[in-house]
Design a protein around this nucleic acid. Structure first.
Lengths: 336, 336
DNA sequence: CTGAAAGCGCTAACAC
DNA sequence: GTGTTAGCGCTTTCAG
């Protein structure tokens, strides 16, 4: 019996009213519960983990005692003893990325379904901070790590993966022991262009604030669809584009606002599709295209938990999530 | 010497090349480092915690051994033994709230400054999920908890605060042992209205998507400034408002988009101020008013760490962060 | 089914 | 300065 429990014991030797103070015990332990239920520690441990091989009577006595004491298992101690924690760590490279919250919904959904809890450490976009965050996660000795959109060097991720199962979401790594789950950006661009072509658009352009490498994919898709990629033609002039695809790191509403500022009516004058299913897009009615982040999260967590289950057996999987186009209010068929 | 270390020992009896495999040891422990450096465990522990009372020579030997082995302290074990973890938990009631990321920047800044690490658990806005997340945090036995925008019942927060220091950001609680840090919304509305009055606006209105209780504050501020609150008057008609204040849970860009959709030029036809310094506001040039979330985070974490330092002494503090108005491109002086 | 005993990796008094 | 000795709270054999 530990010191605090012994204190409780002494209290019980005091006037009866002191007994009422027991539930106030700051952090009752397994042992306190065992003492109160009149059983051994091991039995309480079994009950807490829902073992089937405990008599109904004793089980209830234990549960009752635990409840009265307000007992909560100490996951640190549990993790130390058991060698696994039942928790996975999530490194959010940039908490500001609006996609992350939705990705996390997917992560949490899958983790919840499989009885695993999630612990996050948040970066702010700076690699130095991200590196530190990864270290913190590593020091916790969790069962596995999910890196969301990491910007640090592949070698660092590889090194982390040597000690614990790791899967990466939103970035593709050539690695034997890291799983990678990503959206197919080129396919997304292609889908968007085809959609515009289907609406009758012939001249399209792209806004590319992120200086994204996707511009190449855009040109290829435009060629393939038999459209023409217009550039640097003034709005409202004869050869002006009738549709625009916003690429890269811009949020949907920012693109929309930019067009409005230019005095254009959307989708009256131009149709707009934004790459990346950013939150806020729904509220402002922006048509978007991209890998659904929630689905991406679900798959990524699935891969991680599979790997944890396999004890890290098997080579790194590469999962690609197909894009989805969500038509909202910023696209319209061209009526000549 | 533990089992794994013993294994390493046996390896050393094998051909010399086996020595090279030592750094591959999955998770070297304090003991492994001690063995390699030829010192005791306690000495290694002292070195790892940067104790000044260790000879330079030995210190370097230990550091060298630790480095070669790729040793990382196990924070779970450390926390168990020391009784404190050096970590604080953050409960994000809703990871989707764009303000949270910026609040977290403030939390992280202050925590970093004071040598404390942060562990997040993310909610999705649903109280049930938030309750579970709080439980997970409690089970970790961290040094303190920071609740960001909690929606669960005050009694639950109070109960959590019985076992560990707690401070709440973004919601005011009447409690003796919980610190609360909030923005002053009424003052923000007042500031916005006064700003509009200063720009020469006379008829103003408010968009209130969140059905916020702030509408009362709005009316009071309008009266006080000698303006008139206009409602249900069609845009562009003679008595139409020349400025609008967007209240509640709407993002700045959503409000802006709504006005554009109505065919209005902003700020040509109407000026717009949005309450809540949402990210994205800067990119889209929306004038905002509200408590700066980063500052709020900094203060909240400061309060929590103070309380942790005080061992929970002292009654719950109530800190109010004054609003800031950030003028951008959606407000303009009225030129009749 | 149940209880006793031996750790998990580390810290914190203590003695040497 | 340095090594020894107890635990922290829990899981896990392994005998009863």
């Amino acid at each position: 019996m530990n010191v605090r429990a012994a204190g409780g014991w002494l209290d019980r030797l005091s006037p009866p009213s002191a007994v009422l103070e027991i539930p106030t015990m700051a952090h009752p332990t397994l042992e306190d519960v065992a003492a109160r239920a009149g059983v051994s520690r091991a039995l309480v441990s079994l009950v807490m983990r829902g073992s089937p091989k405990v008599g109904k009577e004793r089980r209830e006595a234990v549960l009752k005692a635990a409840d009265e004491l307000g007992y909560r298992p100490n996951v640190m101690a549990r993790g130390l003893a058991a060698g696994r924690t039942g928790m996975a760590g999530v490194l959010a490279a940039d908490l500001h990325d609006p996609l992350f919250a939705t990705l996390h919904d997917g992560l949490a959904e899958e983790a919840g379904r499989r009885g695993v809890r999630l612990l996050l450490v948040g970066g702010d976009g700076r690699p130095a901070r991200e590196r530190a965050a990864l270290g913190e996660l590593l020091d916790l000795r969790l069962d596995g790590l999910l890196l969301a959109g990491p910007r640090i060097a592949a070698a660092e991720i590889e090194r982390a993966a040597a000690g614990t199962p790791v899967t990466v979401a939103g970035r593709s790594l050539r690695s034997a022991r890291v799983d990678c789950v990503t959206g197919d950006d080129a396919a997304a661009v292609k889908l968007a262009v085809e959609h515009l072509a289907g609406l009758g658009h012939r001249r399209v352009t792209c806004m590319d604030l992120g200086r994204s490498r996707l511009e190449k994919a855009f040109r290829a898709a435009v060629d393939e669809a038999g459209l023409t990629a217009v550039q640097d033609v003034p709005w409202r002039s004869p050869g002006a584009p009738t549709a625009v695809l916003a690429l890269g790191d811009m949020t949907g509403t920012a693109a929309l606002t930019a067009l409005y500022r230019a005095g254009l009516d959307v989708p009256g004058d131009v149709s707009l599709i934004v790459h990346g299913d950013a939150p806020g897009a729904a509220e402002t009615g922006v048509t978007t295209v991209g890998a659904p982040p929630r689905e991406l999260g679900r798959l990524a967590m699935g891969a991680l938990l599979d790997r944890i289950g396999d004890n890290g057996t098997g080579e790194g999987r590469r999962i690609t999530v197909p894009p989805v186009l969500t038509e909202r209010a910023t696209t319209r068929a061209l009526t000549p």
